[in-house]
Design a binder for these strands. Structure first.
Lengths: 350, 350
DNA sequence: CCGGAACGTGAGAGCGCTCTCACGAGTGGC
DNA sequence: GCCACTCGTGAGAGCGCTCTCACGTTCCGG
């Protein structure tokens, strides 16, 4: 007798109802909703009033069914927890992406596969054409995803220059120039025995930043001393080990450029524990300009990437790829900025 | 003549095609796809082979149209950038949510409204019934969203106990108990003049953590000295100001419980700048156990919240709310954990 | 004054799926 | 040997929308 089942949600009106109320055909309402110009002004007004009155909102599923577009794009983040959780890179990036999508009235479907099973689910989901495009964050070197997407002709954009000759749209920060700026800054500050703690040698970002380091030294006419180059892995632990090695092998170093802030923090700790004053004896520069850069004493000079902008650019690129599917891949490389703080303050100011 | 337009994407098979290949009706294929038991074993096998051969994947839009469910839920993050970007809380939370949704084969639609316009778009999107449920992260006190969702009968779960008597499902960490644990830990370590830097007084989490502080002092029979309570705002700047005030007013303090790690880092800096040795003279405890807790010297004792688990629990709760819409609201409060590090090491060990 | 272009509108098909209902073939009890 | 079932399967309607095409007006040039 009583109504026991959960009361039905979603009391939204349909096109048909709007049409009836406005006294026009479904087609006309559809035209109004989709902003067609071929509707007379007063009919448009009548329809709009009806839409307002009924609180009509188009049913995305129905629209999607006929247009064969979902008006949503997927953001795939396949990043090990360590990176994901240790700096606010991803929130920023996603925020940039989200803002740009919102303007275009596209939905953001977030995928964060955790394991093999998840990953397969993700591939199936993407290749099934449930989204109009895909943004790939943190692609692994041998990730088959780009190829699979290309085969299905699903537009995709990746973050960061892909390692192999993967032919795909990408957005990257200018890591090489960033490394160059950081190192040049140290040179300007009068440093001559400049060490570096690199990222992993199999990651493009790490390799590029190191290349920038070499560039800057070459520009300054300072010969590269391989003893001053230590390989890290972007993490604190790796940075610590590398700094200890450097200090032992090259006790005369007067500056360190670290390819991540996390490693810079570690280096700072090791230097201070060894009794080296920063920046007086040794200057330190990090990379990423993450929030921890301002929590250290002294605060950390760092290279800032335009993260939000990278997100926005990925969306622009993707939108272009959706519109003209199959066009030649484009690449966008954004400039970085050096944020000078106390950790590299001059001993020999000009 | 030649095919000039971008080649059509999404060459996916339909139910009909599978049916034709398998020599059965659409209905039967649908039953197989949806795991109905009312299909004989060999027909099922035939159909499955056909599905495999054609690489068939159901069209979500079409399914959605008839079932009136989208199989996706929205996660709404309306957090000021400062919080969002200063600690990896959100990546962790979203990861927990994502993992739990993935198991249930639900899609995660992420919404991060930036401004007023965005916010309205978000409301429209959610109330239009485009998602089966909503997870609200970081609700403002006077946010109309929960009410609007309730009116439309759209299941929702919020993170954190809502301030007013909002009657809604929520998941929270036990902030009060966390504050109690942190303070009790300091008592155990022999501290007696224990100060605290609170969160904003209009945020539930801040108020609760302070209540826990009072609880612990009461348990230990230590009278509360209001001079030892300074109001912060979870940020570094706020923590700095509060610590300076405390140091000026109560130079005899021997410990500080800070309601966030960011404030604890700031307090540490102020204390060290003032020549107080940590932990020998003053012990410091933070809250959140964020990565910066291990970048300070000494490393920071902190209260850890089960962030991923909170995400998972939100999904469980939401799934329940979707299944039995309109049921009485449920609340889940998860325990915290104290992570002891050097910043609160004992001066007076038992 | 008429032919035809331009414009606004409506009718109707159909997107791919689920689900109800009907139906035929087995199965078993009396 | 018949009726009542159960069980597996198919036919067909319809979800809400877009889009093509056809139709009726209006307007203008010749």
């Amino acid at each position: 007798m009583a109504q026991l089942e959960p009361s039905p949600a979603k009391p939204v009106a349909t096109l048909d109802e709007v049409a009836r109320v406005a006294g026009v055909s479904r087609a006309t309402v559809s035209r109004v909703v989709n902003g067609s110009t071929k509707v007379s002004a007063d009919v448009r007004r009548t329809v709009e009033k009806a839409i307002d009155r009924l609180g009509y909102v188009p049913n995305r599923a129905a629209r999607s069914l006929v247009t064969r577009k979902s008006d949503s794009i997927a953001v795939v983040i396949t990043e090990p927890a360590s990176r994901l959780f240790n700096d606010p890179f991803f929130p920023r990036l996603v925020r940039g992406i989200s803002a740009a999508l919102s303007v275009r009235d596209l939905q953001l479907v977030l995928l964060m596969p955790n394991d093999e099973v998840d990953e397969q689910r993700t591939v199936r989901y993407l290749t099934a054409g449930h989204v109009d495009g895909v943004i790939l964050v943190s692609l692994h070197g041998n990730d088959p995803l780009p190829d699979q997407l290309a085969k299905r002709r699903i537009p995709a954009v990746v973050l960061g220059r892909p390692p192999r000759g993967v032919d795909i749209d990408y957005v990257d920060a200018d890591n090489r120039d960033g490394g160059r700026r950081a190192t040049a800054h140290l040179v300007e500050r009068g440093r001559r025995r400049i060490a570096t703690i690199t990222g992993p040698r199999d990651m493009v970002a790490g390799v590029d930043r190191l290349a920038g380091y070499r560039d800057a030294l070459a520009d300054a006419g300072i010969p590269v001393d391989d003893g001053l180059i230590a390989t890290g892995d972007f993490t604190q632990a790796g940075g610590e080990a590398a700094m200890e090695r450097l200090l032992a092998d090259c006790p005369d170093l007067d500056a360190v450029f670290c390819a991540s802030d996390l490693m810079a923090v570690a280096a700072l700790g090791v230097l201070q524990a060894a009794g080296r004053r920063v920046p007086d004896e040794v200057a330190v520069v990090g990379y990423d300009d993450s929030p921890i850069a301002t929590t250290t004493r002294p605060e950390l000079t760092s290279v800032r990437q335009p993260i939000e902008e990278m997100g926005r650019e990925m969306v622009h690129l993707l939108a272009g790829g959706i519109e003209q599917n199959g066009r030649v891949p484009r690449h966008i490389v954004l400039a970085t900025e050096l944020i000078a703080r106390a950790s590299s303050a001059g001993r020999a100011m000009p």
